[in-house]
Each structure stands twice: as C-alpha cells, then as structure tokens.
C-alpha cells in the first residue's frame, strides 16, 4: 500500500481562522480567473490567489518562500504577464463559445473526476503519527536552514537549475529578436520620398495640429486657409484610438462670411 501521507495534527486557532477566511477567497478567485472574459481580470485574480498562497506559506513556517512568492510571482512574473497582455492588446478577450466539439463537457467531467479522486485519496490517507512541524528545522532561522540545504544536499540541482535559468533567458532573447528585413529609413530617405511622391502637398511636411485653430492641442485638427479642418494634422495613432475631437465646431462658417 502506498503510504501517502499524513496525519495531521491540528493547528492552532488563529491559523484556522486565517485559513477558513482566506481559502474560500482563494478558490473563488481561482474560479473567477477561470471564467473571466478579459485576460486582465484573470491576471489580477491570479495575483490575488498568489498573495493568498504567500500568506499560507508564511503561516506554515516557510517565511522565505512566502517572501519569494510575493516578490517573484506577484511582483515579477505577474508584471511580465501584464506587460505581455498590454503588448498583445488589453482588449483581446476570448469568445467563450467553444469550437472544439465535446471539449468542454469532457474537460469538466475529467476535472470533477480528478478533483474527486484526489480529495478522496487525501481523505483516505493516514500517516499514523502527528505532524512534526518546522520548529526544530527552523531553529537557526528559515533562510539559514534553506541555504544549508541548497548549498549542501541540493547543490548539484541548484547549479543545474541556474544553467536552466540562463538558458531560458537566452532563449527568450533569441525568440523575441526580430530580424530587420530592410535598412532603417533615415531622414534623407523620407525627404526624397516626400518630393518624389504623387503630390507635393506634403513636401514641406504635414501641418501641425491646432495651428490657426482656437485650441492649441494635439487632438484638435489644424484649419486650412479656407477654414476647413486639415485631417492630416492629427497623429494617426490618436485617430485610430478615436481620441480626436470633432473638428466641425472649430471650422469657420462660410455662410456668415457671405452674409457679411
């Protein structure tokens, strides 16, 4: 018989309170992460789960791991996730319609089966003795204890894992690197392109925004000599984002001039 684990000694009341307060929140957050439509929401809910776990680590006498969890996961890794999310597009949201036939029911069935099996396994297991606790192991301090383990017993694994880390960093750089297909266009090339273009309208450069307008702001188009708005005076980025003020209200009214 596989001796899976554990008896399990009871904990003190404060820890129980902490657990029963935070654990349901962690599960709810995890489910939320699973169901959230927007990736950003998922990321934030995951960050919450990780912080909860960090608290549990600390509560279980794993002080160093708890700190590392917060610094590395909720700090670095989650920031990396968010950064990539921004890069790929914050708005990119999943359609929740499943397009692989039978994928969702099969997954849920498998998950219920797996969860049920694991839970019943844990429930069945017994160690036959009470939990030891880490008080003895942490007599010299948790960090010192871990360091002793890392640099003696696990030094080989430690070295290997450092090599893995370096390799991963290099790999990421290689993957992220994109080859330039053309040489970069310089000022001279741009100037030649302007004069060789179909019209000389923009030969002297595009008009600046807000010029001759009543507002001197980047999101307000310039006015042409006839009083109409110059669409090319607004940055295409702002235009694409829709952050452009309707220029009609700034245009001069030709009717008024006729009346005068």
């Amino acid at each position: 018989m596989l001796n899976l684990a554990l008896h399990v000694g009871a904990t003190k009341t404060p820890e129980a309170v902490l657990f029963w307060f935070l654990a349901p929140l962690a599960v709810i957050a995890a489910l939320g992460m699973l169901m959230a439509k927007k990736a950003v929401h998922s990321a934030l809910l995951l960050a919450w789960v990780m912080i909860t776990l960090a608290i549990f680590y600390i509560a279980q006498d794993a002080l160093f791991l708890g700190i590392v969890q917060i610094v590395v996961y909720t700090g670095a890794v989650m920031m990396l996730f968010l950064f990539i999310l921004m890069l790929v597009g914050v708005d990119s949201s999943d359609s929740l319609v499943e397009n692989i036939k039978g994928q969702r029911p099969a997954s849920i069935a498998a998950a219920i089966g797996m969860g049920g099996l694991m839970v019943t396994l844990i429930g069945r297991a017994s160690l036959g003795r009470s939990a030891v606790g880490l008080v003895a192991a942490n007599t010299n301090g948790n960090v010192q204890g871990l360091a002793e383990q890392l640099f003696t017993k696990y030094v080989w694994a430690f070295e290997v894992i450092s090599a893995l880390l370096i390799t991963a960093a290099l790999g990421a750089m290689v993957l992220a690197h994109s080859q330039k297909v053309r040489s970069r266009t310089g000022q001279r090339d741009l100037s030649i392109a302007r004069f060789r273009g179909d019209s000389l309208a923009s030969a002297a450069g595009l008009p600046s925004s807000g010029v001759f307008a009543r507002h001197n702001a980047v999101d307000v188009p310039a006015l042409l000599p006839d009083g109409s708005a110059a669409p090319t005076s607004i940055s295409s980025v702002l235009k694409a984002r829709g952050d452009m003020i309707e220029s009609a209200i700034f245009e001069l009214q030709p009717k008024e001039e006729e009346e005068n």
Partner: peptide
Amino acid sequence: QNGYVRSYALIMVLGALALIAMIWVVT
C-alpha cells in the same frame, strides 16, 4: 488528431486522471 493543442492537453489530463485512478484503486 485535430491539430488543436487544447485537445492534446485534454488527452494528457485524461492520462493523468487514469494514473490517479490507478493509484486510487491500488491504495
């Protein structure tokens, strides 16, 4: 073999499930 990586992942999960079920039965 439908080409969807998620299907392959599901098959992996099912494999893990089978493994756990085996342990469950053995124990």
